[in-house]
Computed example of a mutant assay.
Amino acid sequence: MDSLLPEVTRSGGLLGRVQYWFACFFTLGWTAVVCGGLFYQFGMWEYPCPLCIVQRMFMLLAALGAGYIVRTALTRGVVTGRDYMMGWGLSLVAVVAGSFASWRQTMLHVLPGDKGYGSEAFGLHLYVWAWILFQASVVAIGIVMAFAHSTADHSVPATAQGPLRTAGMLALWFLGLVIAVNVVAVFFEEGFHWFLPDDPTRYQFFHDVGFPG
């Protein structure tokens, strides 16, 4: 039986670069989705509920899985089968768990007459869009994992300056920035408490410290 980890590193090919570009796109895509939630939070002054925060956490975890593949290519120039399984496996766990979280929130507002939580985007609430994107990601990850054996140990020229390295660095820095913003946003909303209220109406931290307004 052929090993997924050949002893000799093979020269780069189209599929190897496609896997790398997809990992960059996957990282940037989920990070951008979280930015959409931040826009509704700060731009439209809507407070995310606990399930909203949980979904964001799984979105960022999914991005981190793909980010692991990107970082591996940036630092080593080669992505092994084990690296692909580690990165995409982490993303798969995240999108499956995120699907349950978004499905749970959808079911809370499924009864006729229930207007749902928060605003809509293109006719659907954000948690419904989240469920759709989580499900689509399950399919996408399954496809790229099916081809991982064909790209494992192919060199990915991302260690030298060029578009591959630029895209990878952009994806990782963007992800890190959005994670930091979310940590601060959740802390401000939750304050020094263990739990968020089911229907938050203020930033608890500022209320606790007596910040005016």
Rank of each mutant, 00 (worst) to 15 (best):
I53T: 09
F134R: 07
S119R: 10
L196T: 07
A101Y: 04
L92M: 12
T9W: 04
P212V: 07
D153E: 12
F22M: 03
M169Q: 14
V93S: 11
M145Q: 10
T31G: 02
M59V: 00
D153P: 01
P157F: 04
V18W: 01
W173T: 13
A23V: 01
D83Y: 03
V209D: 11
Y47K: 14
F147Y: 07
D2L: 13
G37C: 05
M169L: 15
A171F: 09
E120S: 14
R56K: 13
G89A: 09
Q204E: 15
L60M: 14
F206S: 12
L175N: 01
V178M: 07
V79A: 03
G36M: 12
A66H: 03
L124M: 15
V178Q: 09
V183S: 04
F42A: 07
L126H: 14
T27G: 04
W129H: 15
A121F: 15
V138T: 15
A63S: 11
Q55N: 10
I179F: 04
L51E: 02
V78K: 10
L133Y: 14
L196F: 10
L90R: 02
L61Q: 09
L133P: 02
R165N: 09
V79W: 02
W194S: 13
L64A: 13
L64C: 07
I179A: 10
F26R: 00
P157E: 08
A160T: 14
A32C: 04
H207T: 12
C35A: 11
H193E: 12
Y20A: 04
T80Q: 07
T80V: 02
A140P: 01
F205Q: 07
L175E: 04
P112H: 11
F39M: 11
E7G: 13
P6R: 00
L172C: 05
L64R: 08
G162I: 06
W45G: 00
L38I: 09
V156D: 03
G36Y: 08
V110G: 03
F39Q: 10
I141E: 04
H154R: 15
G43Q: 06
I179R: 00
V183Y: 05
V186P: 00
A32W: 03
H193N: 13
I53F: 12
G16T: 00
V8G: 00
H149N: 00
T159G: 04
V144E: 08
L177I: 08
A73V: 02
F211G: 13
P197N: 04
D2C: 01
L51A: 11
L51F: 02
D199I: 08
A73I: 00
V93P: 11
W194M: 13
L164Q: 14
M57L: 14
A63W: 01
L38Y: 12
L14M: 08
E120I: 15
W88H: 08
W131R: 13
Q55R: 05
V178Y: 10
F206M: 15
G89W: 07
A94K: 02
L133H: 10
D114G: 09
V138S: 08
F187L: 10
G12C: 04
M57F: 15
L14N: 06
H154W: 08
V139Y: 10
L74Y: 08
E120N: 15
M169G: 11
L172A: 00
N182S: 13
G168L: 04
V186E: 13
F100N: 06
D153L: 05
G118W: 08
F174C: 11
L164P: 01
S119W: 09
S91R: 00
S102F: 09
F134L: 09
F174Y: 11
